[in-house]
Computed example of a mutant assay.
Amino acid sequence: MKLRHSLVLLTWCLASLAGLSANAGVIINGTRVIYNAEDKEATLRINNDSTTPSLVQVWLDSGDAKSTPETGKSPFFATPPIFRVDPNKGQTVRIIYARDPLPTDRESVFWLNILDVPPMPVTKSADDANYMQLAIRSRMKLFYRPTGLPGSSFAAADKVQWTLHQNADGVVLQGKNDSVFNVSMDSAKIVISDKTYEVVTSMIAPKSSAEFVVRDLKQIPTQASQLEYVTINDFGSAVKHTNSLTP
Rank of each mutant, 00 (worst) to 15 (best):
Gln133Gly: 02
Ala78Phe: 10
Ser153Ile: 04
Pro118Trp: 11
Leu164Tyr: 01
Glu70Lys: 13
Asp105Cys: 12
Pro80Tyr: 11
Asn88Ala: 06
Thr163Tyr: 11
Thr147Asp: 15
Thr79Ile: 09
Asp116Thr: 06
Ala126Asp: 10
His165Phe: 08
Thr123Gly: 09
Leu134Arg: 04
Met140Ser: 10
Phe154Cys: 01
Asn113Gly: 04
Ser138Pro: 00
Leu112Gly: 07
Leu115Asn: 08
Ala129Ile: 04
Lys124Thr: 08
Tyr97Pro: 04
Ser138Val: 03
Ser152Val: 07
Pro87Asn: 07
Phe83Glu: 02
Gly170Glu: 01
Val171Tyr: 03
Gln133Pro: 00
Pro101Tyr: 04
Pro87Ile: 04
Gly148Ser: 08
Ser138Gln: 05
Ile136Arg: 14
Ile96His: 02
Val172Arg: 10
Phe76Met: 11
Asn130Ile: 02
Leu112Glu: 01
Ser152Cys: 08
Ser138Cys: 02
Ala156Asn: 09
His165Ser: 06
Ile82Ser: 15
Pro119Thr: 13
Thr123Phe: 15
Phe110Lys: 00
Arg94Asp: 07
Val93Ile: 15
Asp127Arg: 07
Arg137Met: 05
Tyr144Cys: 11
Gly170Tyr: 02
Lys124Val: 00
Pro69Gln: 09
Glu107Thr: 08
Gln161Ala: 15
Thr92Lys: 03
Pro118His: 12
Asn130Phe: 14
Ser108His: 11
Leu142Thr: 07
Gly148Phe: 03
Gln161Phe: 15
Gln91Val: 10
